[in-house]
Design a binder for these strands. Structure first.
Length: 570
DNA sequence: GCCGTTTTCGGCCCGACTGTTTTCAGTCG
């Protein structure tokens, strides 16, 4: 699967062309092409085989040829040619704050800077003094930003950013009377990682809001502080931007700062064609302001229904909105169950009873106890005798109350040979089997997952790629083969809602569901508060355009039971 | 480089902030 690799290559080509002073339109064309490849659900190699590359919006004659070249030879000659003119090290400097393409080109030209080391030396030697556009402050900032980048953490996981923005909003809300306060940006779109936090305030006194913001206790450094906008770096290195707008512009600003950039560009192109102009203050016809107090009004001015933030990625949502076929996205309140939960029996913290209580608190009607299996020694996996007792205990608990149905299940390791981790007769006694790979990641994962799907006892694949966000790439899978096996067997695939995993991801979940594969959203909880990560799984599902009907654990108990009995064929 | 209910050529989103500038370029989102 080369989609990502080619997307990254196109990004690099765009960066290098920019430094070369190429037309920004050509540069943007490459960025659009990269974005298109990244959102692509199909394998780009297959598109090529079927001569359908040109059908992808943003891929024209030129980029199609480069994709073909890469697939055939593993290289793109244009990229290699550019690398001869723009050193690799220069590209990395592109991400240092304040260093854009123009400055880099100038530094390369005048000082023969080819990378970070060169730049640090040149700065120490005072060689930047007197260069065009290089004043005292700029050089000072450059030194700071270089040092800062060296220790900066980069992107953070959604689940890390979430509580931070909640805390900031609470502190800010208590200090200043703002009319409305909302997260925006990739956080509001529920992207799996975020590079910074965007916050929007609607207020008649922007200066007070910004002043309070830059003085929040967790602010480490103020990057900028103007009349309507301030940027700071929080403890831990995460950048947070606050934008303050007048209340009548709140909708337009929220729309604008939620993005994505690609989505917004599309909207503004549409606006231009009908003689409107959209900016963060509203929608304008000439001088006249025709919309902008709410997001709905902005979309309505283009003849569109409101589009949920999670869909705003320029992945076809605007066409869908135009044709009035936006799905009614799943919501957290639709969830009736969590079907991947651990207890004290293996490596969880709660007893069966406590687990049930916590599930009931969240409004669930059923849940599955899925402790680790025999060979999962690292996680206190249950040997067969203990599992038998565990099953009995769970079934006994069900008889003591009628608020919730607990399923006696397992999260069975998929062993290196693709077999499940208990004898068939024991698996047959379980109500529910989640099958997951936890070891031997490189040993034919596709084949093992398919074999696990084909086992009659298996109900669902847990965290199918094994990835850990920002830590570990998932194993390479043959998605076509895997999804076809899921379709053939009727089994489900999980969106693991733990924010370290979010596995399936949005693109794959959309593809799987589109093929008719039942999707589950589970937290894989080990502690009570893990249950609250369900919202991140819902975020992935919404980004995948899923409705409640697409997700098995929104179903009523009776419907679920009928499905479960059909799927689990012992 | 891509694209077409105004176009196969001529367009391509828009504004804030900073710093180096006497009127604007570069960067960023």
């Amino acid at each position: 699967m080369k989609n990502r690799a080619i997307a990254e290559l196109f990004e690099r080509i765009a960066d290098m062309m920019e430094i070369q002073g190429e037309s920004s339109f050509r540069v943007n064309a490459y960025r659009r092409g990269a974005q298109a490849l990244e959102s692509l659900q199909e394998d780009v190699a297959r598109l090529r085989d079927e001569e359908r590359l040109r059908e992808v919006p943003g891929i024209g004659e030129g980029m199609a040829a480069r994709i073909v070249e890469f697939l055939d030879t593993g290289r793109v000659s244009q990229h290699d040619d550019l690398l001869k003119k723009v050193p690799e090290g220069l590209l990395e400097l592109r991400h240092v704050g304040g260093l854009g393409p123009k400055t880099l080109a100038m530094l390369h030209d005048k000082l023969k800077i080819t990378g970070r080391e060169d730049l640090v030396k040149a700065l120490e030697a005072g060689k930047l003094d007197g260069l065009p556009g290089m004043g005292e402050k700029k050089i000072e900032n450059l030194k700071k930003n270089l040092a800062f980048q060296a220790e900066a953490s980069g992107r953070v996981a959604l689940g890390v950013a979430w509580p931070m923005i909640e805390e900031i909003m609470e502190l800010l809300g208590a200090k200043v009377k703002v009319m409305q306060l909302s997260p925006a940006g990739s956080l509001r779109r529920m992207r799996e990682t975020v590079g910074d936090l965007d916050l929007l305030a609607a207020t008649t006194r922007p200066e007070a809001a910004l002043e309070a913001f830059v003085k929040l206790p967790m602010v480490q450094r103020v990057l900028g502080h103007g009349d309507t906008k301030a940027s700071v770096v929080m403890e831990g290195g995460l950048q947070v931007d606050l934008r303050a707008v007048p209340p009548e512009s709140y909708g337009a600003a929220l729309q604008y700062f939620t993005g994505s950039r690609e989505h917004n560009v599309r909207l503004r192109e549409m606006a231009r064609k009908v003689g409107l102009k959209i900016n963060e203050y509203g929608v304008f016809k000439g001088e006249e302001r025709v919309a902008g107090d709410t997001e709905e009004s902005v979309y309505a001015s283009l003849g569109l229904p409101w589009i949920p933030p999670e869909m705003r990625e320029d992945r076809g949502e605007i066409d869908a909105a135009l044709e009035n076929r936006l799905p009614k996205l799943i919501e957290l309140s639709d969830m009736r169950a969590d079907l991947h939960c651990h207890t004290k029996a293996s490596d969880g913290e709660l007893t069966i009873e406590q687990l049930a209580d916590e599930a009931i608190k969240r409004g669930y009607k059923y849940a599955a106890v899925t402790d680790h299996s025999a060979s999962a020694g690292y996680a206190g996996g249950l040997q067969p005798a203990r599992l038998l007792k565990h099953i009995e205990a769970i079934h006994a608990f069900n008889k003591t109350q009628n608020k919730i149905h607990l399923l006696a299940g397992t999260e069975s390791d998929i062993r290196a040979d693709g077999s499940l981790d208990y004898p068939d007769e024991l698996l047959a006694r379980l109500d529910w089997v989640v099958a997951s790979i936890h070891s031997s990641f490189t040993k034919d994962p596709t084949g093992r997952l398919i074999k696990a799907l084909e086992h009659p006892a298996t109900c669902v694949l847990g965290h199918p790629t094994g990835r850990l966000i920002l830590e570990r790439e998932g194993y390479e899978l043959d998605w076509d083969a895997l999804f076809q096996a899921a379709v053939r067997t009727g089994k489900a695939i999980e969106i693991n809602a733990n924010y370290h995993r979010l596995d399936l991801d949005d693109v794959r979940a959309r593809q799987a569901s589109g093929m008719g594969i039942p999707i589950l959203i589970n937290t894989d909880m080990h502690r009570a508060d893990n249950f609250d990560q369900m919202k991140f799984g819902i975020g992935v599902a919404r980004r995948a355009w899923l409705t409640a009907a697409d997700v098995v654990n929104t179903w009523e108990w009776k419907k679920f039971e009928a499905w479960r009995k059909k799927v689990k064929r012992d």
